[in-house]
Design a protein around this nucleic acid. Structure first.
Lengths: 376, 376
DNA sequence: TTGTATGCGTTATCAC
DNA sequence: GTGATAACGCATACAA
């Protein structure tokens, strides 16, 4: 600033590594030190191949020396790109969403994108989703990852108005846009078929709240449908929904036991619930699997370390996060071939196929107890 | 733009809710529609009290109509403030960090701040922490929340150079800056004292890796020191460190059992490990607590639903996240009184006091087994 | 109360 | 290969 030209022989009296006036070190500062224009500095740093070796080195040295860090806001303003992806993920703690988010974040980070996380604790989500999204848009994001599909229309309207790529995670078949997820019905079928083949006819279910939670609802419906294919339904008194959580599973199972519904197997909506269910059975003196079988959906990864180890459907949570990330990145930086494909079928971004699920059998299931089997 | 004045009687032929040309709707668009200048729009939206009621309403209506969302990059550039806090949290999935982050995020969100999350999956963290922080700075953050204290000096140098408020979470007494956390030593003492009073003399420990993990190290040291006060040390063959996780706890406990170290109690570094330990004991036919007591640090919240329910020290993870958030917010928007205090003692931001811990006893501990007790 | 003009730090366009 | 210069969209002195 004081001297726009002047190559930096051995000038500057106090060239500390952390100088900068009141504000922070900018392109202009680096330019002054390197004795070039700010435009050159910009290029030297972002497109080195366009610059001669000597000046590039001078610039890099100067930048290093001053501890220059580009101002993302200015860059975003000029580029109209933030290199940031927003994520809307409700009920973050105590769920398996962290695993999903971790996978999403590292996938994005590997491509130079950062994750702007919004994790409304309450079910503010339901009403305020649009406001929360607005905050994300306002802050500046190039794309958005949503958990689930249950959002007010305003959310999709805003997304469309801003022409933002987005993806719904842990979801399938939304008319609103592309989803990544796995086949919940297949997962439920895996569980139910296994129980049916073992001779179980009276089956209970403890799952998450279905209102405003499409994941819990699909899971529940999947179980119902799979049961129907075997000519069964859930035992009325033994079908509950509750919040996800250890305590909730525990208490729900206590309720089921109180009602003394004669069941031989319980299906658990996720493994938090399953752990609570097992604890309740243990406390009540019910033997697993001798007196009752338990199976679950394995959102997290501790089912194998419960007592008894729980048979579960293993769900590809991490893979789902990676898939979401890759999908968004593909929308963000379309490769030649992808762009060509997109041009061929415009308007319909190709969503990835559902991820595979897998039944993992452990000690918690066995043939239906004799007493129950006699009933049919 | 076409007509800078002109109040918007009933003009514009196709006033769709999502118009905007190639780019997106900006202040100027709203201004044009409302028939005012862009400066007025800016004020009407951010400082409504400076504007007359009538024009304010016109502006708000126009903004609404166009679906205007402010451009955060431009705002950040003009304001030199991003209203964003960066977080560096390693090993995100399968830990108790999500709970912490959730609490941090909602605390910040309540004050209008968003969370930029960086969650290096690997122990890239160790080497690349500075690069990751640089990415955060470059993206633009007003403050930073770090998990733990183990960062290269470059990290703190950059933080200082950019004059960024920051806080280290789950930490105590760092010379590098303010910390929020709880007293790990007190927590360890709670556990060890309880065991000592029950007559245990031969105690083992399975905890997290201490290299490059100050939390695991403090926890380990706390146990050692508490033992020392009772004239004990850990039983050599029964003291292991491993990654956190169910499987890891399971395998570590198997190793301990293999070595047949005659112990009467195990202390677990966290509850993932504890769950694995219990599973291993169960599989080996070791009765808890009759033959062996197990206690643990309760990072997560499922200790009560294990088999048997695990006695633990309950750790205030959520409170820690809130505390971190409040601390940063206080640095960001100093209240009159806080500012005065800061002026009185400049340079040393006052870190909040450690949060309280609590011992929760359940069925997993009892008096030391007779066989072992005989030994002393 | 409202309009005008300038600056925020970068990138991109265009001459040189 | 490099240097001016004009956006980018918003906030804010300053003028009216």
């Amino acid at each position: 600033m004081a001297r726009p030209k002047k190559p930096a022989h051995a000038a500057t009296p106090a060239p500390l590594p952390l100088p900068a006036a009141g504000g922070l070190v900018s392109l202009a500062d680096v330019a002054a030190l390197a004795g070039v224009s700010s435009g050159t500095v910009s290029r030297a740093l972002s497109k080195p191949e366009m610059i001669s070796v000597s000046t590039r080195q001078r610039v890099q040295a100067a930048a290093e020396r001053l501890g220059y860090v580009a101002n993302g806001a200015a860059r975003a303003l000029a580029l109209r790109k933030t290199h940031t992806v927003g994520a809307l993920v409700p009920r973050f703690g105590g769920s398996s969403f962290p695993t999903l988010v971790q996978a999403l974040e590292s996938t994005l980070a590997a491509a130079g994108y950062t994750l702007l996380l919004s994790a409304p604790d309450h079910e503010r989500m339901q009403q305020e989703a649009a406001d929360i999204l607005r905050a994300l848009l306002q802050r500046g994001v190039d794309a958005v990852a949503l958990l689930g599909t249950e959002y007010p229309g305003a959310v999709f309207t805003m997304l469309a108005a801003h022409r933002l790529p987005f993806v719904m995670m842990w979801a399938e078949h939304s008319s609103q846009g592309p989803c990544v997820g796995f086949d919940e019905q297949a997962a439920a079928a895996l569980v139910v078929n296994h129980l049916a083949q073992a001779g179980h006819r009276r089956i209970g279910f403890i799952g998450g709240r279905t209102a405003g939670n499409d994941r819990a609802r699909r899971r529940f419906n999947g179980v119902l449908q799979a049961l129907a294919r075997h000519g069964m339904t859930l035992v009325a008194d033994a079908a509950l929904e509750t919040e996800y959580g250890f305590r909730q599973g525990f208490e729900a199972m206590q309720t089921v036991l109180t009602k003394a519904a004669p069941i031989t197997a319980m299906v658990c909506g996720n493994d938090y619930l399953a752990a609570g269910v097992l604890a309740a059975l243990d406390q009540a003196g019910v033997q697993v699997p001798q007196q009752m079988s338990v199976l679950g959906f394995n959102d997290n990864d501790f089912a194998a370390y419960l007592h008894p180890p729980l048979s579960t459907v293993r769900l590809p949570i991490s893979a789902m996060g990676e898939q979401a990330g890759h999908y968004l990145l593909q929308q963000l930086q379309p490769l030649p071939v992808a762009a060509a494909a997109a041009a061929a079928a415009p308007g319909v971004p190709l969503a990835p196929p559902p991820l595979p699920v897998e039944l993992v059998l452990r000690a918690s299931t066995g043939p239906a107890p004799a007493a129950a089997r006699r009933k049919r």
